[in-house]
Amino acid sequence: MISIRGLTKSFRGAPVLRGIDLDIEDGEKVVVIGPSGTGKSTLLRSLNFLDVPDAGQITVGDLTVDAARASKSDILALRRRTGFVFQNYALFANKTAKENIMEALVTVQKRPRAEAEERALSVLRETGLAEKADSYPAALSGGQQQRVGIGRAMALGAEVLLFDEPTSALDPEWVGEVLDLMRRVAEKSQTMIIVTHEMQFAREIADRVVFMDGGKIVEAGPPSQIFDAPRDDRLRRFLKRVGRDQGAG
């Protein structure tokens, strides 16, 4: 489903991704963990060129995009195959929940407005927000806003859903409802790549956990290996530190 080869990215000359290689199977749930500032979000954002990689290849299905030669049409094609969920929701403040979900369906996928509206309402029902269809983001809780953000990604029918720390901006009271929705999405055999600091959730949902440090993949494996029998000292130290903060791991 997804193949990443030699992915690099620097900001102002400082390397953030240092040659990432990663393969992800169709329907696999991969959770990326690691210290802050180690390149996790940059990796996710590079997969659909929200951050343009310096070098490397990204393959999703039968589409391969080379960072050094990517055209606008390549990038657009890649984005059509990926749905992105932002940590800060990234909703249009002047659009209702329904209109936020419709936006990409109309502007990117060129669907008729009536069809886009029907799809948006269906997704809102699925996310438990049918009664909030005509509400603006300011009238929604943080958890509801993030559920709209997830619904927007779901509505596109993308082959891969990318979640960039989807609960990090939420008050603790709203985290559970967002994680519950993500669990329901995962049950549909949806391919998902999730950057998160929620270790218990990672243990529950992941087929594979990837630990990053210093812009590289240090260790990867099933949750039982990563959390119960970590091999790398950096991973062991990270889990101990996170365990103190969360009471998990």
Results as ranks from 00 to 15, higher is better:
residue 201 F to D: 08
residue 177 E to Q: 14
residue 180 D to K: 13
residue 165 E to H: 08
residue 156 L to E: 02
residue 101 I to D: 01
residue 221 G to Q: 03
residue 155 A to F: 11
residue 178 V to R: 03
residue 151 G to N: 06
residue 119 R to E: 15
residue 225 Q to H: 10
residue 114 A to K: 12
residue 170 L to T: 05
residue 96 T to S: 13
residue 189 S to A: 12
residue 104 A to G: 10
residue 113 R to D: 14
residue 129 L to G: 13
residue 186 A to E: 01
residue 181 L to V: 10
residue 192 M to D: 02
residue 184 R to A: 13
residue 86 F to Y: 12
residue 90 A to K: 15
residue 176 G to W: 09
residue 105 L to M: 12
residue 85 V to T: 08
residue 90 A to N: 15
residue 110 K to L: 14
residue 190 Q to H: 00
residue 149 G to W: 01
residue 203 R to T: 07
residue 209 V to W: 05
residue 214 G to K: 11
residue 141 S to F: 00
residue 156 L to I: 11
residue 174 W to K: 02
residue 228 D to V: 08
residue 151 G to S: 06
residue 214 G to Q: 10
residue 206 A to Y: 10
residue 101 I to V: 04
residue 177 E to K: 10
residue 198 E to S: 04
residue 218 V to Y: 00
residue 159 E to M: 11
residue 110 K to I: 12
residue 224 S to E: 11
residue 164 D to L: 12
residue 92 F to V: 00
residue 202 A to T: 09
residue 151 G to P: 00
residue 125 R to K: 13
residue 184 R to T: 14
residue 185 V to R: 12
residue 114 A to F: 04
residue 173 E to Y: 04
residue 206 A to G: 11
residue 133 A to G: 06
residue 90 A to M: 15
residue 209 V to L: 07
residue 156 L to A: 08
residue 116 A to C: 07
residue 152 R to D: 01
residue 90 A to T: 13
residue 141 S to R: 04
residue 142 G to I: 10
residue 87 Q to P: 03
residue 85 V to D: 05
residue 129 L to D: 12
residue 175 V to H: 14
residue 130 A to M: 10
residue 126 E to S: 07
